Simulated assay, not measured.
Amino acid sequence: MRRGSHEAPYDAPPHALADEAEGYLLAHFHRDQARREAEDLCARMPWLTTAQAEELTGHYVRRRLDVTRQSLRSTVRRAEELRQEYENRYAALRHTLLRRHAACACAVLACAGGVSALTVLLTR
């Protein structure tokens, strides 16, 4: 290991730490946003006791985080589906391109062989 360089533990990709930090910050952002929304909701209901407001805030935050989690999971699932579709399409296009190049190479070789044979016949 070179001096001053940092490697991710457990042979993780170099961006794994950044992804984890981003996820942590994103989760805290959503939780703080949900808490602010719940507090705004409780502020519009002045008849709630402190305990009721805290209970409502806790319930709202939990429910909101569940909805956010489900939304993020469905987004990740869809991204994986799209990635697989694009990879399959790319492989099919690459295969088709390879077949076409092989066919063109065969045609060029056949033409070269034909021209060569014709040249030999004409020079005799």
Results as ranks from 00 to 15, higher is better:
Ala18Arg: 04
Ala34Leu: 09
Arg73Ile: 01
Glu87Pro: 07
Val120Cys: 05
Asp32Lys: 00
Thr119Met: 13
Thr49Pro: 05
Pro46Lys: 01
Thr49Ser: 13
Met45Pro: 00
Leu97Ser: 12
Thr75Val: 09
Glu55Arg: 05
Glu20Asp: 05
Pro13Asn: 09
Asp66Thr: 02
Leu122Asp: 12
Gly23Asp: 04
Leu121Ser: 10
His95Val: 00
Ala12Phe: 08
Ala8Arg: 08
Leu82Ala: 11
Leu72Gln: 07
Arg77Asn: 13
Val76His: 15
Ala51Thr: 00
Leu109Cys: 13
Tyr10Cys: 06
Arg89Glu: 15
Arg69Leu: 09
Ala12Thr: 02
Thr50His: 06
Leu121Gly: 03
Leu118Pro: 02
Tyr10Ile: 00
Leu25Lys: 01
Ala43Arg: 13
Glu7Ala: 12
Gln84Asn: 15
Glu87Asn: 13
Ala51Lys: 01
Arg83Glu: 15
Arg69Phe: 06
Ala43Phe: 06
Arg3Lys: 10
Arg64Ser: 13
Arg64Glu: 14
His101Arg: 14
Arg31Gly: 00
His30Asp: 13
Ala8His: 07
Leu48Asp: 02
Val108Gln: 06
Ala103Thr: 04
Ser116Tyr: 08
Thr57Gln: 10
Leu17Ala: 10
Ala34Ile: 04
Ser116Pro: 00
Pro46Glu: 02
Gly58Arg: 09
Arg69Pro: 14
Arg2Thr: 03
Ala105Tyr: 10
Asp11Pro: 01
Thr68Lys: 14
Arg62Thr: 06
Arg73Phe: 15
Ala27Phe: 07
His6Cys: 06
